[in-house]
């Protein structure tokens, strides 16, 4: 079958403004958008620029806007889109453009680093040197938020983040949640204090864009609600 991609192009060395270019080529219904981009780059236009690595939804490199929705190019098959029409491919929003589909992720990772996204427990280790104990139920409590691959699809789908980059955004909250609700961790209070601040969870307007955008199907809105509740009640149950 034939498919047409309408791609937002931008080369800072040549272009004052981004512009769309169209590419029509043969493809299979089971091809991923990433496969189509690779074909264009390989055979038609080597200047087309995008990030990619694992090509199966694990590394988080290829988040982009496909038909107006944030997705991973490697997890979006043509057969799930209406290929009778042009497919629009644009960079994710809210971060500075670098070139074509590549944006500068610095702010995204800086926001992530603000929420203490690491395990904290300075208590003595078990005397036998073995693992800290954690029941399967305690482990299950934060399972959903361990799945995050930091692709940025959620944060760059968030209208609040578009308006103000200082809002830490859904991805950072997901990664804070992963530790706040880990029974072994001891820094929940500090993280909750950060997230109670003016860049934190109360900036969320519950637009649900984040949950819809997540390629890992993390229930982000629920995680944000749980963090809000923990701040309000002071409890982690």
């Amino acid at each position: 079958m034939q498919v047409t991609l309408k791609i937002l192009r931008y080369n800072p060395e040549k272009d004052a403004q981004p512009h769309y270019e169209r590419y029509t080529l043969d493809a299979e219904p089971t091809d991923r958008i990433l496969d189509v981009l690779e074909k264009i780059k390989a055979h038609e236009d080597g200047t087309l620029t995008f990030r990619r690595s694992c090509a199966h939804g694990i590394c988080g490199s290829c988040a982009m806007r496909i038909n107006g929705r944030n997705r991973l190019a490697c997890k979006t098959l043509l057969q799930t889109l209406d290929t009778s029409k042009e497919i629009t491919v644009e960079p994710i929003l809210g971060l500075p453009r670098v070139k074509d589909l590549v944006v500068d992720m610095t702010t995204f990772f800086d926001n992530y680093k603000k929420v203490m996204p690491y395990f904290v427990n300075d208590e003595p280790l078990p005397e036998d040197g073995r693992e800290r104990l954690q029941s399967p139920e305690e482990r299950e409590r934060f399972d959903d938020t361990t799945k995050c691959i930091l692709c940025g699809a959620c944060t760059t789908a968030c209208p609040t983040f578009w308006a103000d980059n200082s809002y830490v955004g859904p991805s950072a909250i997901v990664n804070a949640h992963r530790f706040i609700f880990d029974s072994r961790d001891r820094a929940a209070a500090e993280r909750l204090k950060i997230l109670a601040g003016e860049s934190g969870v109360f900036r969320c307007r519950t637009a649900f864009n984040c949950t819809e955008a997540c390629p890992r199907e993390i229930d982000i809105t629920k995680a944000i609600a749980e963090v809000k509740r923990a701040i309000i009640t002071g409890r982690l149950d």
């Binding site: 029941s135 399967p136 961790d185």
Partner: peptide, 22 residues
């Protein structure tokens, strides 16, 4: 064993046995 315990001490969320072990 030492290295796997070290990862656990860094917070790695291993699945657990009913006794709470890795």
């Amino acid at each position: 064993p030492e290295l796997v315990y070290e990862l656990e001490h860094m917070g790695l969320p291993f699945d657990r046995t009913p006794e709470g072990r890795i």
